[in-house]
Simulated assay, not measured.
Amino acid sequence: MKRAFVFPGQGSQTVGMGKELSDAFTVAKEVFQEVDDALGQNLTKLMTEGPIEELTLTENTQPALMATSVAVARVLEKEGGKKLADMAEFVAGHSLGEYSALTAAGSLQLADTARLLKARGLAMQKAVPVGVGAMAALLGMDIKPVEDLVAEAASTSENDEICVVANDNADGQVVLSGHKGAVERVIELAKEKGVRKAMMLPVSAPFHCPLMQPAADEMKAQLAKVTIAPPAVPLVANVTADQVSDPETIRNLLVEQVTGRVRWRESVLYMGQQEIESLVELGTGKVLSAMVRRINKAMTGSALQGPSDIEAFLNSL
């Protein structure tokens, strides 16, 4: 079976994440310790004990989710006696999960990634004053009608406020981002068009839209400081929904990703076109694996979070 390893993004964090892994596997504990050392912070304690309010701060969430995902990948390699390239044809990650994917595939070093994500979280938080931006999810409406609504709202706006599609997650699941007023206008239009559900999201900043340009500039400077190697298997990139292995292209795409659309639905469709039959989600939660069949009914999804999941997966190889 041809499979890809995929890595979750923000929103999958939970108190207790990674604890089972750390208790069961020395290699997982080593991952968490290396991240703690790189950040000069006891992130592991925060992940294990909370409070959730502090764990949910973007600057903490991003390296925590990455550490858990990479821990699963390292355990798979150690316990299975196989390299990642022996188990997967591609890697892909949702937003910050792209950093997890690249680290698991050996393109980025773990300590570098931890520091990059700490910087990324802080930069994204600072890019837009609280209350200026917003994000919203539209459920039950596909990408083309949403793009039409965004264009309609922009054409009738009397100011320069922006609203764009931030995430094309799956059929019937699209996320908007931009100025709060502009996002609210698109939501009202969507309700008039009969959208099944439209809701503002409890986020601290409007991610993946042009308002994040200051954060993109910061990440360009931060990424220039680190070495990026060709990944063990190609990355299917968020902003292109296409495979990439060239280090400098990866570096540029990670900068673009801060302001660009997460083309997750297209990425999954692309992997299906490359004869991938299964997406295996590594880390916390089951968000990506749960969306698989909504995008491609011929593809299966599964999630590896704890020792029992990992054992079952390795036994299936």
Rank of each mutant, 00 (worst) to 15 (best):
K220N: 14
V255Q: 13
G272Y: 14
S245A: 08
G194H: 11
M212C: 02
Q274T: 06
G283F: 07
M199S: 14
V280W: 03
M271R: 11
K193D: 02
L201E: 10
A198I: 13
K297P: 07
S267V: 09
K191W: 05
T240R: 14
K286W: 03
Y270P: 01
A205D: 06
K286G: 04
Q213H: 08
V258G: 04
W264Q: 07
P247W: 02
Y270S: 02
P214V: 11
L254W: 02
R261P: 00
L279Y: 11
T284L: 08
N238M: 04
G260Y: 01
E275V: 11
R294E: 01
K297D: 14
S204N: 11
V258K: 04
V258H: 06
L282M: 04
M200H: 13
K225P: 03
V203G: 02
S204K: 12
K220S: 12
T284R: 10
P247R: 09
R265K: 14
S278A: 08
L282D: 04
I250H: 01
M271P: 10
L282V: 04
V226N: 06
D246T: 09
T227M: 06
S278V: 11
R293I: 02
E275N: 14
S245T: 15
P247G: 03
E188G: 09
L253E: 02
V236Q: 01
I187D: 03
R294Y: 00
V195T: 10
E266A: 15
M200Q: 13
M271K: 10
P206G: 07
A303N: 12
R251S: 02
G301K: 12
S289M: 05
K225I: 06
K297I: 10
E218S: 15
P210C: 05
P231A: 03
G272D: 12
A232R: 12
T240W: 01
I187V: 15
Q243K: 15
L288W: 08
M271H: 08
S289G: 06
P210M: 08
R265L: 01
S204Y: 09
E256W: 08
V226F: 00
D246R: 10
A229D: 10
K193Q: 09
V226W: 01
E256P: 03
S204E: 12
H208C: 06
V258Q: 05
I276R: 06
K286D: 10
A221F: 00
P214L: 08
V287R: 14
M271D: 12
V244M: 06
G301P: 07
M212V: 03
P230E: 15
A198W: 10
E192Q: 15
M299N: 08
L189M: 12
V292S: 02
C209R: 13
V203K: 01
E275Q: 14
A221T: 12
F207T: 12
V203T: 14
D246K: 11
R261H: 06
P210K: 13
V280A: 05
L269D: 09
R251G: 01
S245K: 14
I228W: 04
T284W: 00
S204C: 07
L211D: 07
L279A: 08
E218H: 12
